[in-house]
Design a binder for these strands. Structure first.
Length: 332
DNA sequence: TCCGTATGAGAAG
DNA sequence: TTCTCCTACGGAT
């Protein structure tokens, strides 16, 4: 159940373990059978996150397969003959991985996590004597298999082979992504465009932070925690947010989400030495690797508890169909 | 066995 | 705003 940090991790992991390799693609469940056939036997070149969307790129040189797929009318490969698998995990889509030691060793995510500690979609299991993928369990939409390991995808909201035009449209529709900064090969996102998109609308800022056209990758947890850390009432309209507040929100999102990528889970109680937040005295300086789950956030799912900042009872309400958590006492 | 829940998003009304 | 889809899991029945 991912916010943007999970998708960036997954993209990195898929590239690490499958990049440059010819991959068998199948759909044990059957619902992606046609798409799997388009990709099967191609080389997986790299995976990339665009906000919460995962784009997995395959080259056009198949294992003797037809490159023209009349089914559906439109060609699925772009001008270079590349094909792109678009995955959106939705609320409960998840990947699981397994393979031999070299497969696990290639993973930037590393060894399997303890049960209960794993964030969906990022665990890697090392099979003692890898002889191929296990029999599929449950509804496996897509299975990727290389010589050294496998990946299963279950429950995605979206899973389809798309065109180069589709990819372009996706990029243009996506709001600035706090996880895409200078040094990435794509465009550099910054706080200025976020500020402009946030501050021009008369819509609750708590709703705008979840709007992927305003900012990419933020979900329900980061939404609640960012606003608490900033001391901003989620019901305040976007146009009432000051430039400074928008800049601070962006800086904090950059920090927290990068930390989410590093840790493999959302931890919002960390201190950013470069951009202190309003509740600086309450943030922690620890490494955060072993913090129990309930201590990794200030307000998300802390309904009824005392606000760590002012002692007011943490409230919950439904905003745009999602549970919102905030402190009515100190978020203004 | 059923029910509720979940870090999402698009369509319908 | 409400509904719908995608799936797994834990707890109640």
């Amino acid at each position: 159940m991912p916010e943007g940090h999970s998708i960036h991790r997954l993209a990195r992991q898929l590239t690490d373990v499958f990049g440059g390799q010819r991959v068998r693609v199948s759909s044990p469940q059957g619902r992606f059978a046609a798409g799997a056939e388009l990709l099967d036997g191609h080389v997986l070149t790299r995976a990339e996150a665009v906000g919460k969307q995962l784009l997995v790129r395959f080259d056009g040189e198949g294992a003797g397969r037809t490159t023209n797929s009349p089914a559906g009318g439109s060609r699925a490969d772009d001008a270079d003959g590349h094909r792109v698998l678009r995955i959106h995990l939705g609320l409960y889509g998840a990947f699981s991985f397994g393979g031999d030691a070299s497969f696990v060793g290639a993973s930037s995510i590393g060894a399997p996590r303890r049960m209960g500690e794993a964030e969906n979609g990022t665990e890697v299991g090392e099979d003692a004597e890898y002889t191929g993928p296990p029999a599929p369990v449950g509804a496996v939409r897509v299975r990727l298999v290389s010589d050294h390991g496998w990946a299963d995808l279950r429950g995605p909201t979206a899973c389809e082979v798309i065109t180069a035009e589709d990819v372009q449209a996706l990029r243009e529709a996506a709001g600035p992504d706090p996880l895409r900064q200078a040094g990435d090969d794509e465009r550099q996102d910054d706080g200025a465009s976020f500020s402009r998109l946030l501050r021009r609308r008369g819509v609750a800022c708590g709703q705008l932070l979840m709007d992927q056209a305003v900012v990419s990758g933020i979900g329900n947890v980061y939404r609640a925690e960012l606003l608490w850390r900033a001391g901003i009432d989620p019901y305040r309209l976007g146009k009432s947010i000051t430039e400074q507040e928008a800049a601070d929100l962006w800086a904090d999102a950059v920090f927290l989400m990068h930390d989410g990528v590093r840790l493999g889970r959302i931890v919002t109680t960390q201190r950013d030495p470069h951009h202190p937040v309003a509740r600086e005295e309450l943030t922690l300086d620890t490494d955060a690797a072993d913090i129990p789950d309930e201590a990794t956030r200030f307000v998300y799912k802390h309904t009824g508890e005392a606000c760590p900042h002012c002692g007011t009872t943490i409230a919950t309400a439904v905003m745009a169909g999602r549970n919102l958590y905030w402190c009515p006492g100190c978020q203004h």
